[in-house]
Computed example of a mutant assay.
Amino acid sequence: MPAISDGAQRLARGIAAMLFDADRDRHFAALEAFDRAELLGDEWRDADAP
């Protein structure tokens, strides 16, 4: 079947979306509770600095 990989990929995406949606409130709560800055500003260095 030529399109079996496309169908499998579509099925996997659908299942993943349904699982994520089922835990949507938990994922959003974890996002809101995140209190550690991901970027602090010291990650960037001047490429031209010695």
Results as ranks from 00 to 15, higher is better:
28 F>L: 13
29 A>T: 12
3 A>Y: 08
6 D>N: 10
39 L>I: 06
33 A>W: 08
40 L>V: 13
1 M>C: 06
43 E>H: 03
6 D>C: 07
14 G>P: 02
4 I>D: 15
33 A>L: 12
31 L>V: 11
25 D>S: 11
1 M>P: 06
7 G>V: 01
18 M>W: 02
24 R>M: 13
36 R>G: 08
12 A>N: 03
39 L>C: 05
32 E>M: 11
33 A>H: 12
27 H>I: 10
44 W>L: 13
46 D>V: 05
37 A>T: 10
48 D>P: 09
14 G>H: 03
50 P>Y: 06
20 F>K: 04
34 F>M: 14
35 D>N: 05
8 A>K: 05
24 R>K: 13
10 R>H: 03
15 I>C: 01
13 R>M: 05
7 G>L: 01
19 L>T: 04
13 R>L: 04
22 A>Q: 03
22 A>V: 00
37 A>R: 10
11 L>E: 12
9 Q>V: 15
18 M>L: 05
10 R>N: 07
30 A>P: 07
50 P>M: 05
32 E>N: 11
24 R>T: 11
21 D>Q: 03
47 A>H: 13
43 E>I: 00
43 E>L: 00
4 I>A: 07
43 E>M: 01
39 L>G: 02
3 A>S: 15
3 A>F: 06
28 F>E: 14
20 F>Q: 06
30 A>C: 14
6 D>P: 03
11 L>F: 13
36 R>K: 12
32 E>V: 10
46 D>A: 10
32 E>C: 10
16 A>K: 00
42 D>T: 07
40 L>M: 10
32 E>Y: 11
38 E>A: 15
19 L>I: 04
15 I>L: 02
27 H>T: 13
5 S>H: 09
31 L>Q: 09
33 A>C: 11
43 E>S: 02
30 A>I: 11
48 D>L: 12
49 A>Y: 11
41 G>Y: 00
11 L>S: 13
29 A>V: 06
48 D>E: 15
47 A>F: 14
38 E>C: 11
21 D>I: 00
15 I>G: 01
18 M>A: 06
40 L>G: 14
45 R>K: 08
21 D>K: 01
31 L>W: 09
